[in-house]
Design a protein around this nucleic acid. Sequence first.
DNA 1: TTGAAAGCGCTAACAG
DNA 2: CTGTTAGCGCTTTCAA
Lengths: 339, 339
Amino acid sequence: MNRTTPAKRTTIYDLAELAGTSASAVSAVLNGNWKKRRISAKLAERITKLAEEQGYAVNMQASVLRRERSKIIGMIVPKYDNRYFGSIVEQFEVRARERGLFPIITCTMRDPELEVEAARTMLSYQVDCLIATGATDPDRIADLCAGAGVRTINLDLPGARAPSVISDNYGGALELTRRVLANCRREYGVKAPLFFVGGRGTDHNTMERVRGFRDAHAEAGIAVDEAMIQACGYAPEKAENAMRQLAARTSTLPRGLFVNSTISLEGVMRWIRYSGHYSDGMPHLGCFDWDPFVAMLGDHIEMARQDVPKMLEAVFGIIDSGAGDFSVVEVPPIIGGVD
Amino acid sequence: MNRTTPAKRTTIYDLAELAGTSASAVSAVLNGNWKKRRISAKLAERITKLAEEQGYAVNMQASVLRRERSKIIGMIVPKYDNRYFGSIVEQFEVRARERGLFPIITCTMRDPELEVEAARTMLSYQVDCLIATGATDPDRIADLCAGAGVRTINLDLPGARAPSVISDNYGGALELTRRVLANCRREYGVKAPLFFVGGRGTDHNTMERVRGFRDAHAEAGIAVDEAMIQACGYAPEKAENAMRQLAARTSTLPRGLFVNSTISLEGVMRWIRYSGHYSDGMPHLGCFDWDPFVAMLGDHIEMARQDVPKMLEAVFGIIDSGAGDFSVVEVPPIIGGVD
DNA sequence: TTGAAAGCGCTAACAG
DNA sequence: CTGTTAGCGCTTTCAA
């Protein structure tokens, strides 16, 4: 409010001059270590008041440049278009701030190039630590960070060169498949394989989910044909397409579907609505991921809700403890039906 | 890969030494203005190669400290838990990067305190420009920024001290209400007011939507009682509660609802499902906001999808043009039914 | 109790 | 074509 020079910002030197003291005193007062410097309470008071009046704000770039640690923590994340990543990011910010860290986030749009580009940029901004969420090549990022002496933690998708926190994809998929299989048997009396759709066949999570999917079928004594597993990618159109192709090549559609994300589910549901198939009754669905509106879509959907609070607790546990081993923490998802 | 000192990072001085040249030459080469310095192609080549080998990354803190403009652009956003804000953030990042700006985002969890706190922090990080999205007190933020000589733009919710880009809330609500009213008349033959639920009665958007809601009723010759408008907040529980109270005090529930966000809709839908009311037939719904799964909830829902691409185009248009007037750009939402 | 001074890594004149 | 130099604003010894 009292600013006379809107162009030039107030510095600690300006404040020092106004207070009739030195820059180092101002600096000490303003970041709380005036106790160890034993600065007089009145001087501290005066400086604080002045800073307030002048609308002073530290220049973090200068501060970070000088300090040893930046207290900036970075996260890269694939997308913001679903509840899973949305809550990861929200929780990340909250917990980072709780610890006095400044969170910076970059969304990579699932683009592997952008992923490492983003990691590099974060290193340029001197992050103390980088969380690689759902990275396609986490080890590449881990190497980059190692080179700069920066800690990395993998989230959602594991890597071999940094600690990882992921969902128990196998266990979740196993249980989810069991339930959908049971639902199919109960309602339709059928004992046939489900159709697995969505995800990237090359990523660890999808592979583990397929394994759970297979084992649940094996338990039930149901054979699963290779063609019943289509890890076609995450995009809705790809899932929709996979459904279309399935319908084209088979006479009787499966009574149950395992959908590998809410994003893929968008495409599957659209196809179900508009293709005219399944007009004789909705198939039973299992979705690996949670969304409140999906929960309201009907009583034929089971979801595996990844436990984001626990996952972030684990991530920050690793950060706080400074643990150095590259182990993988697996957090069980919460499996349930409507709501 | 060739790093011998993992603790200490490579600087332009190290590079200069290795290349047998000066730091300024390295600097010039590495940020592309080696044309105006007319540095020999071979030197440039050598430096670039060396930087690569050494895994060199600029120290942005030092760079920003020295430069006039930081090329950092900040955004504050209330939540990441819905498609609207999710796509705002995604688009923001994409467009910022297109322009060579580094985007930093902070989520304020709809907390007014955190809002100004976040703005302050961004100023400390020397943002060149700050986008205040859905801010409860945008003018406070605008003042803060003005004091630091930083541009602000309001998004989603308008302010008086900076340019604003918002949806055409009045027009959208008017049309949405008209449609829901028409749907009610068509299916149930009723000509009764809808129930307006969700949002903050004090914010500009909600007030404008209420105005549109009222005018659509007036057009149709339907009187709207004060009690039919409950801007109870955004949280699902609050909307659910408003529904419960409505049911408690009225004998016949309205055949149509105007819900002021997908987040509020969560609560409304939950109540509809579990309260047992409306078992004789779903009410017609209008939702001011879009979600793909809501679109699949049935044929009795109309949505106003805010035009995020256009809104961000407008925001960056203002940034690019350097426009200084505090005008409000209103972008019409896209109104439609299922899909 | 406090101030002076060095320097973090980089950019941008300016001087060759 | 290239190097020297002077800071950007802050933190942190070190001296007083």
